[in-house]
């Protein structure tokens, strides 16, 4: 009998979490998906996020590897610095980016309110999530395997690509999925640093905010789209985490 309150609490929690998502789809009309606001926002979101994530992967991966494999004075300070944007309120991130790259900022650039600014804002907010996860993934690779690779005639570069990267792959994939989800939902820093100009800087979340008091149904359609994309991401993330090794095995056996 003691189980009843526990089950009740679980049911209330689940209903509470599911209701807004169900509501978005219950009132969704597909006709609004073809509105130019929606298609423009989808294009801006996908384009800016793709570019931002490419930079995050290209620069974040070596950064994470250096931080995971080297011990130097001040290392924990550097790691904390990398992690800081994760806990920073988005508005602070926005004002910080303006103070750094704005016309009156430290670097005097004309970056703000361009599509590039969206990329910068997304990379600044989402990148650290990937880097932090990647550090953990690299730290999880057995040092003995790295040493073994070296004694077997492989230099640091070959060791990285043939041993470290394949073994850290699951963690890196999970980190990238998290960063992508965070980047796709980016709102505060983007609206302050890049504005909300349709077809240029207006991403999906910004469009939801811009439309909800103009045309509630368009806002709903945008919301539905975001839920769908996020759900696909979440499923991909779980699949990556559970099957990274076996997926790798297939890739290998078909190539050999």
């Amino acid at each position: 009998m003691r189980r009843i309150p526990v089950v009740g609490a679980a049911l209330v929690t689940l209903a509470f979490l599911a209701l807004p998502i169900v509501a978005v789809f219950a009132r969704l009309s597909f006709a609004h998906l073809s509105s130019s606001v929606v298609t423009d926002a989808l294009v801006v979101s996908l384009k800016t996020n793709a570019v931002a994530q490419a930079f995050v992967l290209l620069l974040g991966t070596p950064t994470a590897y250096v931080l995971a494999s080297r011990r130097f004075p001040g290392r924990s300070l550097v790691v904390t610095l990398v992690e800081l944007p994760i806990v920073l309120p988005p508005a602070v991130a926005g004002i910080g980016l303006l103070a750094a790259f704005g016309r009156m900022g430290l670097l005097h650039t004309s970056l703000p309110f361009t599509q590039t600014a969206v990329v910068v804002a997304v990379a600044f907010v989402a990148g650290p999530l990937y880097v932090r996860q990647a550090i953990a993934a690299f730290e999880g690779v057995d040092e003995t395997l790295v040493a073994a690779s070296r004694t077997l005639g492989a230099g640091p570069l070959k060791t990285f690509f043939r041993v470290v990267l394949p073994l850290a792959r699951g963690g890196l994939g999970a980190g990238e999925a998290l960063a992508f989800a965070r980047g796709l939902g980016e709102f505060g820093a983007t609206i302050m640093f890049a504005g909300s100009l349709q077809g240029v800087t207006q991403t999906l979340p910004l469009a939801v905010y811009a439309e909800f008091d103009v045309d509630f149904h368009t806002a709903l359609a945008l919301g539905g789209l975001l839920v769908a994309v996020s759900a696909v991401l979440l499923v991909t993330l779980k699949w990556l985490a559970s099957s990274s090794t076996s997926a790798f095995r297939f890739a290998l056996s078909s190539s050999s």
């Binding site: 057995d142 003995t144 395997l145 040493a147 073994a148 690779s149 041993v163 394949p166 073994l167 090794t245 790798f248 095995r249 290998l252 056996s253 050999s256």
Partner: peptide
Amino acid sequence: YALFPHLS
């Protein structure tokens, strides 16, 4: 033995 777990 430090065998690479991801390789045959």
